[in-house]
Simulated scan of single mutants.
Amino acid sequence: MKEDILVNDVIQSLPQVLVDGFILGAVYAIVALGYTMVYGILELINFAHGEIFMSGAFIGTAFLFVFSGLGLFHSLPALLILIIVLVLTSVLTGFVGMGIERVAYRPLRKAPKLITLITAIGISFLLQDFVRFITELKRGNYILTGPSLFNTQHSIKTHSILSVFGNAQIKSASIIILVVAVIMMITLDFFINKTKWGMAMRAVAQDRETASLMSVNVNKVISLTFFLGSALGGATGVLFAVQYNTIDPYIGFILGLKAFTAAVLGGIGNIRGAMVGGFVIGILEMFASANLSTLTSGVLGSEYKDVFAFAILIIVLIFKPEGLFGKSVAEKV
């Protein structure tokens, strides 16, 4: 009887878990793209990418405050303002990513990978403290609460279709996140697979030296990769800030690790794999958040949801280190 009640509770919560999981997974997926693009070309884990995401959240929120102070929310649709903020933030964070590559990574391109990894971690801490310093200087507190936008709740009546399921709620901001995330992922996939620059990126990822001999400007391709990954990460930071409304300089650390887990799960270096991995991690995390306490009779609370993401990373690295969509590559000796 007790087991039946547990199963019923899990099934009842499933629609809401899927809705919240897809929203969180969309964030993980786009941030994971930045990791997998850079790794595919440089074989570098850019651990500063989570802080690019965080910087995008702060830059976007600052733009929203400026536009609100100018009274533009009364004269322009909020959705149009959000699109403008997304574009501006994407461009700025894209140039930040290019600057990091030019200053911190390019001089170390022939150095041992451990040195570039330590440099990436150092850049991560530098961005955290820089954003915290600026925020505290301007506002006296490093925790930032943005303007409330797109908070209208919409009901999804799943109970009327199948009585075993409960209903779900979704905010307007969540719908915007899903739509924008899907557009960005489709656009990036098209760019990588159908354009001249995308072909150059794939060529450099496959063999950097040979691509340079075929008149491909490797430095420009790498800069473009950092720009695209950072622009997507910054735009996702804006969407995250609109969805959750409260941000701080440390949101990029754990989220970045989970996005990296998603990239590894999908197959690091594989664009479509990173997308799928992000959604899988998001759904599993929300499932744990909603049902972990019920399934363990209160022994483990929802705060243990983070364990799921990193347990998955360990399992994948042990049993399938190339990821779900990755391919094993024989090392030439």
Rank of each mutant, 00 (worst) to 15 (best):
L126H: 02
M184K: 08
R139V: 11
K196T: 10
I283A: 12
G97N: 05
Q16G: 14
S212A: 05
I177F: 08
S174H: 03
A311N: 01
Q243M: 09
F308Q: 10
F133M: 12
I84T: 12
G252N: 05
G298I: 05
N219Q: 12
F227W: 01
E136I: 13
H154M: 07
G60N: 05
A262N: 00
S163L: 04
F58Q: 00
G323S: 06
I134K: 00
A78K: 13
G60P: 08
V7T: 15
G40S: 05
S212G: 03
F319D: 09
V182H: 06
D306P: 02
L213G: 15
T119L: 06
V276M: 00
S160M: 14
T236I: 14
T61W: 12
L213T: 14
N291K: 14
F67Y: 10
V242P: 04
S293D: 00
V299A: 15
G146W: 08
V264Y: 05
G146K: 11
V329P: 09
G25N: 02
L224W: 14
V238T: 00
L317H: 02
K332Y: 01
T36Q: 03
L76C: 00
A263Q: 10
V280F: 08
K327R: 09
Q153I: 15
L257S: 02
T116E: 15
L257M: 10
V276F: 01
I23S: 11
L224R: 07
T89V: 07
I100N: 04
F325L: 02
V238R: 06
H74D: 14
D20M: 11
T116P: 10
R109I: 04
L42Q: 10
V204L: 12
V238H: 01
A274F: 13
R109Y: 08
I268E: 00
Q243I: 05
N8K: 13
T195Q: 14
G323F: 08
P321F: 09
I30C: 11
D306M: 06
L126Y: 04
L224N: 04
V218A: 04
V238M: 03
V276N: 03
G71E: 11
V242D: 00
R102N: 09
I30N: 15
V96H: 13
I30H: 14
T296S: 15
I247L: 01
S230M: 07
L126K: 07
I312C: 09
N151E: 15
K110Y: 13
F133C: 06
R202D: 10
H154A: 02
L86C: 06
V164G: 04
I314T: 07
A57D: 13
L239E: 08
G198C: 06
P249M: 00
M286V: 15
F240C: 07
L178E: 00
I315R: 02
G198A: 06
I314R: 00
A173E: 05
R208S: 08
A181R: 03
I115C: 13
I315C: 08
T61S: 14
R109Q: 01
E43M: 13
F165M: 04
D9H: 04
E285F: 11
I81H: 03
I254H: 13
V204C: 11
R102E: 05
V276Q: 01
Y244K: 07
E136Y: 15
S68Q: 06
K194F: 14
S75N: 13
